[in-house]
Every structure is written in C-alpha cells, then in structure tokens.
Computed example of a mutant assay.
Amino acid sequence: MTGRPIRIVVVDDHPVVRDGVAAMLSSAPDLEVVGQAGSGPEAVDLAAVLDPDVVVMDLRMPGGSGVDAVREMGRRGLRAAALVLTTFDTDSDTVAAIEAGAVGYLLKDSPPETLVSAVRATAAGETVLSPSVATRLASHVRAPARSASLSAREREVLVLVARGLPNRSIAKELFVSEATVKTHLTHVFEKLRASDRAAAVAAGYERGILG
C-alpha cells in the first residue's frame, strides 16, 4: 500500500453493528477507521474534529438522524463524504439522504467486499447506489416527456458515471478532455432534470438508458 489510507468514521446506534462494520473496514490495508459515533450529532462533531475522508452513516438513530447529520456536515462545509449504510430503502429514506448530500447509499445486507469498494469509491467522489435504491430514487427524478433524448456520447458518459468512474477516468476511456466530459455531464443533467450524478444515474435506470 502506498500513500495515506482512507480515513473513516463509522456511525450506528447499535454498538455491535458499529464494531462489526469498523472491523470489516479495518481489515482492508488501505482503510483506517479513525472514529465511531452512535448518533447524528456525535457524527458531525467527530467529522469536524477528525476530518475523515468518508463517514459511513446509519440513517435512523434515536440520538439524531443520519439525514440531519449529512445535511449539517454540508452546512458546516466539512470535507468528509457521506456513505449511507442502512437497512431501510424506502422512498422517503433514499430521497431524503441523497437530497441531504449523501454520495452513496448501500443496504446492510451488502457483501463485505461491496462495502469496502463503496468506501473507496465514495472517497474518490464517485456515486455508489444499491440497485434497489437506484430504482426507488428513479421514481422521484422522472423527466418530462418533452425532455430531449441523450446523444450517443452523452449516453456513453452516463454509462461510465454509473460504473463509478470519475471525470478523469471517463475522459481517458473516451479519449476526450475532462472539460469535454464536464460539458457532456452538464447536458445530461439538464436533459434528465437531475441535480447531481446520483440523480442522473437513477434517471438513467428509469428511462432504460442503463441496463
């Protein structure tokens, strides 16, 4: 392993679950769990002090919800990216979390290797959504019928975004500049009425653009 490990704060109100997730992540050589929290407010305070790369956030906690914590982290301008890890995939939970600023959303029944990969992707600024979450989210980002269809290149860009590739990797894959990728993404967002990468991917599933 080279370079600094990805620093993580794990947030869950159940100590056994929290310890289990922390142990699972710590087993990866490039991941380091630097703190644990049992509520949303505690998570925000820890993130402010420890400056982690990723906060793995449960949603429903008696001491303060994960959604509120994600929103507060954004309001404070904290650097950490939020990856939701929860048992809930209802419309209200998924949409609220993504709108609050969560970069990814996984369910707790995800395999350990999926969680490890998701943390790495989240630290790199990539969008990670469980398939069921993407499907639920899609119903809330339906574009009007008058919206223009994507061009072939815009569709290619969206497919690569759905694979979790950052702009730089997409540019390499398509042999174009990062500026060109950003322009295509801007058009994709406009056409799909999406505010960010996660919403665009969800809309892509909804429209059948993504398999």
Rank of each mutant, 00 (worst) to 15 (best):
M1A: 14
M1W: 11
R4I: 08
R4L: 13
I6N: 07
I8E: 02
I8R: 07
V9D: 01
H14N: 14
P15T: 11
V17R: 13
R18L: 12
R18Q: 11
R18G: 05
R18K: 08
D19Q: 14
D19H: 13
V21R: 00
A23F: 08
M24L: 14
L25G: 02
L25T: 05
S26D: 11
L31Q: 10
V33N: 08
G35N: 11
G35K: 12
Q36M: 13
S39F: 05
S39Q: 06
G40E: 06
G40S: 09
P41K: 09
E42G: 10
A43L: 09
V44K: 11
D45V: 15
L46N: 10
A48C: 12
A48I: 10
V49C: 07
L50H: 09
D51W: 04
V54Q: 13
V54L: 12
V56N: 04
M57Y: 03
M57P: 10
L59Y: 04
R60Y: 10
R60S: 14
M61G: 08
M61C: 10
G63A: 01
G64A: 05
S65L: 03
G66Q: 00
V67E: 06
R71F: 00
E72M: 08
M73Q: 05
M73Y: 01
M73G: 08
G74N: 09
R76T: 02
G77Y: 03
L78I: 02
A80F: 01
A81Y: 02
A82H: 06
A82T: 15
T86S: 13
T86G: 09
T86W: 10
T87C: 13
D89M: 00
T90C: 06
T90A: 13
D91C: 04
D91M: 05
S92C: 02
D93A: 13
V95K: 01
A96R: 07
I98G: 11
I98T: 10
E99G: 09
A100Y: 11
G101N: 10
G101P: 15
V103H: 07
G104Q: 01
L106I: 01
L106S: 03
L107M: 05
S110D: 07
S110E: 10
P112I: 00
P112N: 05
S117G: 10
A118G: 02
T122L: 01
A123R: 13
E126R: 14
V128F: 04
S130H: 12
S130K: 04
P131Y: 06
S132H: 05
S132E: 10
V133D: 00
R136E: 07
L137Y: 04
A138I: 01
A138D: 07
A138T: 00
V141D: 08
A143P: 09
R146N: 14
S147E: 14
S149V: 14
L150I: 09
R153T: 15
R155N: 12
E156N: 09
L160I: 09
A162V: 04
A162E: 11
R163I: 03
G164R: 03
L165H: 07
N167A: 11
S169W: 11
I170C: 06
A171Y: 12
E173G: 02
L174V: 03
A179K: 15
T180Y: 15
T180H: 14
L185Q: 15
L185K: 13
E190K: 15
E190W: 15
R193I: 00
A194W: 05
S195Y: 04
R197Q: 12
R197V: 14
A198Q: 03
A199L: 03
A200T: 00
V201L: 03
A203H: 07
R207A: 11
R207F: 03
